[in-house]
């Protein structure tokens, strides 16, 4: 029996918002440590890695490891039926072929349950090597989303270059070119407004703007986003999910011809 109860159904709604652009379906791997998801988009250019720790749930029970193949379009439709302040419970019998979502209104006067068929998805897991990144940038998530949106109007690629002074985002195309430079903030009163750069060596990499924009669908989950870069390895874009976990997006760089 698997049962996970979350008081804030908005977390699960936002997680679906954050992944449904990139993935049509994904396997939720549930164990007693929590729920993990790892899936590449169809083009194998980007990967989503999500982790929700069991201790972040109000109630979590997983008698035996269970992998639930979810159609994310259907799951999104079901989660749209939950109000933000509803309590959501996901449950499934061992080796079940359906999963049930129960939404309870705060005053318990309305309880809804939705049963969704599970899919048999082939489990293709990638080994992601632990990496010491040359540059790790932390900036306000809203700022990053704004930069990706503004620059994607100029070209299909964004060049991110990182030095100890700060980070520069550039794009060029038919209408012209654009550069956005963010300097390291010196003393900001609020942590989530800071721009910080931890640099071992300068890095400049090129990425497809449409994937970056897809990643920023996770902006509602966290005030801060972390970008990790090293020469010629995939970019990591990480958003924390409250105290319960994180979403990490990996994006293969574009190689200059």
């Amino acid at each position: 029996m698997f049962e996970a109860r979350l008081v804030q159904s908005s977390i699960l709604k936002k997680v679906l918002e954050a992944i449904k652009d990139l993935l049509n379906e994904a396997t939720f791997d549930c164990s007693d440590s929590g729920i993990q998801l790892q899936a590449m988009d169809n083009s194998h250019v980007s990967l989503v890695s999500m982790n929700l720790r069991s201790d972040g749930f109000d109630k979590y029970r997983c008698d035996r490891n269970i992998s639930m193949g979810m159609n994310l379009g259907s799951m999104t439709k079901i989660l749209k039926c939950a109000a933000n302040e509803d309590v959501v419970t996901m449950k499934a019998q061992d080796n079940a072929d359906t999963v049930t979502f129960v939404f309870e209104s705060p005053n318990q006067e309305k309880v809804s349950d939705y049963e969704m068929k599970l899919m048999n998805l082939d489990q293709e897991h990638l080994g992601i090597p632990e990496t010491e990144y040359a540059c790790v940038v932390r900036l306000p998530a809203g700022e990053f989303a704004r930069i990706c949106r503004d620059l994607s109007q100029f070209g299909e690629s964004v060049v991110i270059s990182c030095t100890k002074e700060g980070v520069k985002f550039s794009s060029a195309g038919d209408i012209g070119s654009a550069n956005i430079k963010l300097a390291q903030t010196s003393n900001v009163d609020k942590e989530e407004l800071a721009v910080t750069v931890e640099m071992q060596e300068p890095v400049t990499l090129t990425f497809a703007s449409r994937y970056l924009n897809s990643f920023t669908k996770a902006t509602s989950l966290s005030n801060v986003v972390q970008l990790s870069m090293s020469p010629d390895v995939p970019l990591v874009v990480e958003y924390r999910i409250g105290e319960i976990g994180h979403i990490r997006y990996y994006l293969a760089p574009k190689i200059e011809d």
């Binding site: 194998h44 897991h125 190689i255």
Partner: peptide
């Protein structure tokens, strides 16, 4: 122009 890489050339399938 720049060619889009794929993750398969960076991460191995377990």
């Amino acid at each position: 122009g720049a060619t889009q890489g794929r993750l398969d050339s960076f991460f191995k399938v377990l």
